[in-house]
Design a binder for these strands. Sequence first.
DNA 1: CGAGCGATTGAAAAGACTCAACCACCGTGG
DNA 2: CCACGGTGGTTGAGTCTTTTCAATCGCTCG
Lengths: 229, 229
Amino acid sequence: MLDKSHKHVTCSTCVSRKISLFGTFCEDELKHLEENHACSHYKKNQSLFLESSFPRGVYCLNQGRVKIFKRGDEGKEQIIHIAKAGEIIGFRAMLSGEPYNVSAETLEESNICFIGKDEFLTMMDTNPTLRNGIIKELSKELADRADFITNMAQKSVRERLAFALILLMKVYENEPINLSREDMANFVGTATETLIRLLKEFKEEGLIEVQTRKLIVLDTRKLMEIAGK
Amino acid sequence: MLDKSHKHVTCSTCVSRKISLFGTFCEDELKHLEENHACSHYKKNQSLFLESSFPRGVYCLNQGRVKIFKRGDEGKEQIIHIAKAGEIIGFRAMLSGEPYNVSAETLEESNICFIGKDEFLTMMDTNPTLRNGIIKELSKELADRADFITNMAQKSVRERLAFALILLMKVYENEPINLSREDMANFVGTATETLIRLLKEFKEEGLIEVQTRKLIVLDTRKLMEIAGK
DNA sequence: CGAGCGATTGAAAAGACTCAACCACCGTGG
DNA sequence: CCACGGTGGTTGAGTCTTTTCAATCGCTCG
């Protein structure tokens, strides 16, 4: 595993380059970024940052998946988002000037680069495209969260699970969805037992296929119907 | 009411000036803004914009209160936010480049100024303070919504109501909270009947005082305890 | 004064949660 | 190589919260 932890990804070839906010960087900017970031390997279930601590920079997820969550009163996690390769993590708190409001933890082995606060803010100041990209990103997420709130408030657990599975398909792209039942329950916002019972129903209805932890969606259309609008 | 509708508020004296994102504007900017906005009077329950329509500018709430909400599958409203005097409304969708994801409607008579899209975007481009203020605002709201989601997912209706009342105290400042039971239920995310029963409990416990529609919080501390962290 | 809408109450049903027990798989150490 | 322990997954039963539906009340506005 040590060799993996030293795996070096140049910013020019990094996935985030293609997908993310850094997509429009020119050669010079890339070179600069290259020199000012630290890439490291994370094991499964490693923490990137904790709620209420102070941001020192942003994380660029090159490979792997990361859950963004918040703990409720009784310590139960509510997963707000699951980030996949190419996403930049943790810039919201940094831009708000407040401590983190959520925690982030890897769901699997991951390669993640760290870009310091000053570095990132300077880039934002000097690169209007990046800046606008970030503003757009923030606004879109705000819209997503309004949807999330409405779903939570008005949909049944069954509907929310169907919705969550559709979201998870995008997170896992062509791979099977691979999440612990507890994490999945904490994403849907329900008890683990309830989640398991509903997965069983979906399986019996032929909507999904389950192998232990792994889960494949068979009938997206039907799931969408269940999920509602 | 016609005279009211012609009430003219200069940008220099507008409440939004003091509170909002425009707080740092210099004389020139204010003069410019003054010339390029349209101020109008809204009656109660008038719509500012509808979900899925396209933004043409932003609204500056000078006087009154506005609910920002989204309709779920069955048409039930989920209130995401209640804006009070001084807030700027509707810039998220404008910045995301997508149609509105929520609707906005006055809860009472209001004075609201409209600033066109180009106008607003130009201001953002030329005024870094405004720009940073907006970025900060977006980030903070994102954090608030993560809290909102977690509350919805994990708290009981009773806890959520307590929490909502505390938020509403801030929205209504020193005035009594004045919302229809239905709106309040749609803010808390519950059925109207459930909301009414819980309000009755709170009244019996001496936490609030109720006069028909109007509601005064008597024991904030206790409510906070009920609301939890 | 009457219509109508919002507020309120009651009763029953449904959905989801909790708790407790049990199972199955996996890696470890003997 | 196998027994062991532990974690995560699963099931069942009972309980509680919340919703739903139906009916009533009461105020306000024509």
